[in-house]
Simulated scan of single mutants.
Amino acid sequence: MNLRLAKKGTAVCVLAGCSSESKDKREYRTPKSLCSIPVDADLLTPLLPEGKTVGVEEKNPVPSRSLCQVNVDGKTALITSQEWRERGDGVTDVADSLARIEGGEVTSDDKYLYAGTGAVGHTASCSNPRHKEHVLFTAIQLFADGHDDATSMKKLITAYTEAVERSDICS
């Protein structure tokens, strides 16, 4: 009887692609924050490539935009951004300005646009005295080859946008 169960279990694993060896070739720890914005590493991991080292670098190209670049083995894997835009802009306007986001699906509340290689979020309750006439958007762009996961992207942009809304930038 135990042998029969073992054979069934083996067949299920063969069909499902199970392995006793880990297929994950990540030798680094997934970051728990993206430039001071906390993120659940479990949401970020599926979007990052295999590799040995990971680094996170903050960039502020202009006063209305901040970037957080995640590099794996020295190559850009993912970039998050926070950008103050004019009132009236929507997630599609922001997505149209970003190279890695093509197409995508907009949520029913128009708060998020997500695709396999990127996403945009619209902060609902964010204000800042330095940006009185603007609204804050978040974005994530994937640059790692072979990564295209709209479901994971939707989860990450939602969590990232909510974390930004709780941060000091929205005070």
Rank of each mutant, 00 (worst) to 15 (best):
S19N: 10
S22A: 14
S22K: 06
K23F: 15
K25F: 11
R26D: 12
E27S: 08
Y28H: 04
Y28C: 08
S33Y: 11
L34G: 02
L34Q: 07
L34P: 00
C35K: 05
S36D: 15
S36G: 06
S36L: 14
I37R: 04
P38N: 12
P38H: 07
V39E: 03
D40Q: 13
A41G: 13
D42R: 13
L43G: 04
L43N: 11
T45Y: 10
T45V: 14
L48V: 02
P49D: 02
P49F: 05
G51L: 10
K52Q: 05
K52P: 02
T53S: 15
G55D: 13
E58L: 08
K59R: 09
V62P: 05
S64P: 00
S64K: 10
R65W: 15
S66E: 13
C68T: 06
V70K: 01
D73W: 05
G74P: 04
K75I: 10
K75M: 13
K75R: 12
I79G: 02
T80E: 06
T80S: 02
T80V: 14
T80Y: 04
S81Q: 08
S81G: 13
Q82M: 14
W84N: 02
R85P: 04
R87V: 15
G88P: 06
V91S: 08
V91L: 10
T92G: 02
D93K: 07
D93F: 12
A95S: 07
D96M: 07
S97L: 14
S97F: 08
S97C: 09
S97Y: 02
S97A: 15
R100L: 15
G103E: 10
E105K: 09
E105R: 08
T107K: 00
S108R: 07
D109H: 03
K111V: 13
L113C: 06
L113W: 04
Y114D: 05
A115T: 04
G116R: 00
T117V: 12
G118M: 09
G118K: 04
G118C: 08
V120A: 09
V120Y: 10
G121R: 02
H122K: 12
T123K: 00
T123D: 00
T123P: 00
A124M: 09
A124F: 09
A124V: 11
A124K: 04
S125T: 14
C126K: 03
C126Q: 01
C126L: 11
S127E: 11
P129C: 05
R130Q: 14
K132F: 14
K132D: 13
E133D: 13
H134L: 15
L136D: 01
T138I: 08
A139C: 03
A139P: 05
I140M: 01
Q141C: 07
Q141L: 07
Q141S: 06
L142Y: 01
F143M: 02
F143L: 05
D145R: 01
G146D: 10
H147C: 03
H147W: 07
D149H: 08
D149M: 06
T151H: 08
S152H: 12
M153P: 02
K154W: 09
K154M: 12
K155F: 12
I157R: 01
T158F: 11
T161M: 05
E162R: 03
A163G: 09
V164P: 02
V164Y: 01
